[in-house]
Write a protein that binds this DNA or RNA. Sequence first.
DNA 1: TGTACATCAGTGAACGCGCGTTCACTGATGTAC
DNA 2: TGTACATCAGTGAACGCGCGTTCACTGATGTAC
Lengths: 203, 203
Amino acid sequence: MTQNTAPKPHHHGDLRNSLIRAGIELLEEGGRAALTLRKCAAKVGVSHAAPAHHFNGLADLKQAIANEGFRIFQSYLLDARAKGPQDPHSQLKNICRGYLSFAIENPALFGLIFSYNRLSELQRSLDDKGQFAYDVLRETCAPFVRIGADPVIVETQVWSLVHGYAQLYLSGRFGPVDPDAQNFGPFETVIALLDQLPLANGT
Amino acid sequence: MTQNTAPKPHHHGDLRNSLIRAGIELLEEGGRAALTLRKCAAKVGVSHAAPAHHFNGLADLKQAIANEGFRIFQSYLLDARAKGPQDPHSQLKNICRGYLSFAIENPALFGLIFSYNRLSELQRSLDDKGQFAYDVLRETCAPFVRIGADPVIVETQVWSLVHGYAQLYLSGRFGPVDPDAQNFGPFETVIALLDQLPLANGT
DNA sequence: TGTACATCAGTGAACGCGCGTTCACTGATGTAC
DNA sequence: TGTACATCAGTGAACGCGCGTTCACTGATGTAC
């Protein structure tokens, strides 16, 4: 076809992105230890030497996966906020639902992009990507900041609350993980927690 | 000396516990991937085959490390609560400081014991150990539950808030990680967040 | 349009490495008598 | 108290495995002319 959009690889077509997607699947299927260059190559159906043409080693692939993870994470937040009513309260609740949805549907990726990793070179790059997600949260929190108050308090409180609940829920600390739970599931719980926060009237 | 307290190993003295301690150090020094049976053995100074007499494989050592991690975590909570004034507000604040201290001083261990691991057989065992820590938090939260209200709301809110803040702080999301930060560091921040919660008067 | 050529993504064999695990062994410890 | 013995923690060699990485190669693609 045309080649004006992106440089098309000659044989596979889109091996780099395919390897990233395969890596995410391996991560969710078998945890961090299951993410290897050879397994990614096998999942895509190429030889184990092929990834070397697209990534400068395993660390580089991991970084690409984490970047893609942040992109997906941000799309969860934006999609959730855009779907419902656009008043500030609905936006705030929906963005928190999106946060929790991402964590539940992509638990290993969620763990990867927020993992503490003092040793990793990728931390700084991730900081930039993570900043976009933070910005989405910040602007959604803005209407709830009391006049004259430091907006960081509300932002940090909402983010910590949702993030902590998501992780503790995933770790099974609040009972078995069941995304299909009826009645009072994790989404209702996190909204109930949010309703307890002393937020200013959203304007 | 005497042998009436615990069965003393013949040669090393306390190899099992030494391997657990070495494993925790490796974890903090080099991340999850650095935790191997051979490295633990080398760090303790025994042959790489020695651990097989004390652990049934790497997964067994990891489980022992996670159990020890929960024990240390709980001791942080209890020590922090016991040190300061014993009124309910001080207790609640101090237990949250202990929570954050543990996370900052043992970030990899913190990550391990709260890691989502669907695949691990050790999850159930950890659930039991984690329950003790939850109980400490629950009883400290009890005075702040409004009459007639579900105590789970306060417990979950406090726990999620502190846990989420600890993890986001460690991941560098709130700026560089600096335990020696002057003025308004992570401990002051988490207390400020806590002060915003709509808690009943501690009695 | 056709041909010759440069590019480069993917191949398959090969390498060294650290890993978990096994095995027969050694030798210190603790115990039975 | 002394001796013979059973126990078992730790040793060192060996194994097969999956890993990342390299290398010369192949052959399809895209381009220059």
